[in-house]
């Protein structure tokens, strides 16, 4: 695929054009200092120097709470879907998060598509910003999702000394580059070399967290992990659900109806497979009544070969958000370590 160079003094111009073309979601620093992927209204709002965002991109494609149907129960029952569609450009988002979207694509696409997810996904463009330095919690190298990617993005931007190296990864990304050729020049070999140098250096900045995904995958796939591992992990988990909500690829949801006037809406909400009642049946029977069973099911779904084959890859991108968000010590890094040690 093609690569271009965008001089530093033209970055804002290009961002301005994107803002006129679509809603732009970019890293934005809020008043507390935390960074969120959030709609921006001017190039100056983009926090180019951020390390990681509090949340992944999931919320934009699968909201924590969304209305899927509207119904009226008057004389005659009427039901209609509530679908939201708009063009969105996700700018300067991290490669782990773009990889997370690719995993969600496999889950929500396929033979039966989820129309709500796909309507948003089809109109989204992902421009990633490669990481030059890992954050404390990061282990994307273990998750095969960064800090630099070979593919999976529409465009991947790398901040070079004099401007952005823009790599195109899809037709959508190429079309975007074509539309703004006046600002771009073809990348020079020394610019590509500079990127490779930055990529190498970035890999040396990872901290204490890692994830033994290969070992965990093998043991989970063959159901070799003894029960004691899950029981011990259960003592290190308070079932807050934070790891699932912060995970770029966790996508469980539940559905509830809500009455409003002489009708109502059907909504879906994020759910967490770690919750006690997640699999509880109307009869009261709970096939995963034990906390340890729920942990086993979660990590099997995330890392086993069986599910990796269905989704095209395993479901950990190494963003480390579960490390930050864990109320105890049962995040991906701790869990794979426990599984590896047996």
């Amino acid at each position: 695929m093609n690569a271009y160079f965008l001089p530093r003094d033209r970055v804002d111009e290009l961002v301005g054009r994107l803002l006129r073309a679509a809603e732009v979601i970019a890293p934005k620093r809020v008043e507390t200092g935390d960074v969120f992927y959030s709609p921006v209204s001017s190039p100056g709002e983009v926090a180019w120097d951020y390390k990681t965002a509090v949340e992944p991109l999931k919320r934009f494609l699968l909201p924590q709470q969304e209305t899927v149907l509207r119904f009226s129960t008057g004389e005659k029952l009427r039901v209609e879907p509530v679908l939201e569609e708009k063009d969105r450009i996700f700018l300067a988002v991290r490669n782990c998060d773009v990889t997370g979207v690719n995993v969600l694509d496999a889950m929500f696409g396929g033979e039966i598509e989820d129309p709500y997810y796909m309507a948003r996904r089809r109109r989204a463009t992902f421009i990633s910003l490669a990481c030059l330095e890992a954050d404390e919690q990061c282990f994307c190298v273990c998750g095969d999702a960064g800090p630099f990617l070979k593919n999976g993005y529409d465009q991947q931007w790398t901040p070079l000394a004099e401007g952005m190296l823009i790599e195109v990864g899809s037709d959508k990304g190429q079309a975007l580059a074509d539309a703004h050729q006046d600002l771009l020049s073809p990348a020079e070999p020394d610019q590509v070399a500079e990127k490779l140098q930055l990529a190498k250096r970035a890999e040396e900045t990872f901290g204490e967290f890692r994830s033994y995904i290969a070992a965990a995958m093998r043991r989970l796939t063959l159901a070799e992990t003894p029960d004691e591992v899950w029981e011990r992990l259960a003592d290190h988990c308070v079932e807050c659900g934070g790891c699932t909500f912060l995970c770029p690829t966790c996508s469980c949801f539940t559905v509830t109806d809500r009455l409003e006037g002489d009708g109502g809406v059907r909504e879906r909400h994020w759910d967490a497979c770690l919750y006690n009642c997640y699999a509880r049946e109307a009869s009261g029977h709970n096939p995963r009544a034990e906390h340890s069973q729920r942990l086993r099911a979660r990590f099997f779904h995330k890392l086993s070969h069986q599910w990796a084959q269905r989704n095209g890859r395993h479901a950990c991108v190494g963003c480390g958000r579960c490390v930050v968000g864990c109320q105890a010590w049962a995040h991906m890094s701790a869990a794979t370590e426990a599984i590896r040690r047996g």
Binding site: T32, D34, V54, R59, P63, Q64, C240, V324, C326, Q327
Partner: peptide
Amino acid sequence: VGTAPMRAHPVSRGRLCL
């Protein structure tokens, strides 16, 4: 429509409970 944790917070540091 949603809740997110606050990393900048001195008590919760990016964590929340159920």
